[in-house]
Simulated scan of single mutants.
Amino acid sequence: MIEAIIFDFGDVFINLDKQAIDTEFRKLGLTAWHEDLDALNKKYELGKIDELEFMSGFQKHLPDADLISIRSAWNSILGDFPLYRLEFLQMISSKYRLFLLSNTDHTHIEKFEHKEGQTFARDFYSCFEKVYFSYEIKLRKPEEDAFKYVINNHNLNPKKTLFIDDKKENTEVAEKLGLQVWNLEVGKEDVVDLFSKKFSF
């Protein structure tokens, strides 16, 4: 029987528009995603650098773009957060121990809270026993330590814990650690379909 559920955030609750971020950065002159930008992103998601350092790192590749434009382009990936998903969470929050584990950064979370409003964000966060953002805990998926951090902090039994994420590399590591997993297919499945899946609730 599943007692606890650990959810991802992006493309599980909030929709991500990956085409938009690509389009917006191309407008600023970025023709390709460089390896050093990937490394920069990971450092920011791990809370190792602040927002100014992150945006300035981007600016090296976009000398004609100002920091505000870069920030706007970076946030363009954030789509809508359908209300029915929040209502689904609220419905199950009294029945299961719920946790959020997201690879994200301060900029995106600030934008989400501003875009959806503080009341919506507060209602969302209150559904969880604990919310874990990578930039705050200095750990990110698919590192085993990120999963162990949540499991150990709350004495979770992996066999009775379900992990839901849209990225295969994340669910593979979680499964290796003994958790039950749902690798959600974006566009084909929705988190609210959870109880139609073959898990023992």
Rank of each mutant, 00 (worst) to 15 (best):
Q118K: 14
Y132G: 02
S200Q: 07
T23L: 10
V12W: 01
H154M: 06
I68H: 13
F81Y: 14
S94V: 08
L86E: 08
T31D: 15
K198E: 14
L162W: 08
K115A: 12
T104L: 11
E175Q: 15
R26Q: 15
H34I: 01
L98W: 06
P142R: 08
S94P: 01
N183T: 15
F133R: 02
M55T: 13
I92Y: 03
F195K: 00
N183Y: 04
G178L: 03
K160M: 11
S94T: 14
N155H: 10
K42E: 06
L156D: 05
L194D: 10
I70D: 12
E169T: 15
G10T: 07
Q180S: 13
V192P: 02
G29P: 12
L184W: 06
R71V: 05
M55C: 12
N15V: 11
N41K: 04
Q59S: 13
N183A: 12
A39C: 00
P158T: 09
E172L: 15
F199C: 05
A32Y: 12
I5L: 04
E172D: 15
K159G: 03
A32V: 13
E169A: 14
I70Q: 11
G47R: 04
K168N: 05
L101K: 03
G29A: 12
M1G: 13
D166P: 07
K167P: 00
E51W: 00
L89D: 04
L156M: 01
L184E: 08
L162T: 11
F88Y: 06
K42W: 00
I2G: 05
T119N: 12
I109M: 09
H154S: 05
F112D: 02
K159A: 15
K43H: 08
S94N: 10
I49F: 03
P142M: 11
Y44I: 01
F13N: 04
K48G: 04
L86G: 06
Y44F: 15
I6Q: 01
L62C: 07
T161L: 03
E45R: 02
L16V: 11
Q118V: 13
E144K: 15
E24Y: 02
E45K: 02
V131F: 00
R85E: 10
G29I: 13
F163N: 02
D64S: 11
E129P: 00
K148H: 10
D193A: 04
F54M: 09
H154T: 12
R97T: 13
A32P: 01
D166Y: 08
S56A: 13
I5K: 02
N75G: 01
L156C: 01
T161Y: 01
M55P: 00
K95P: 08
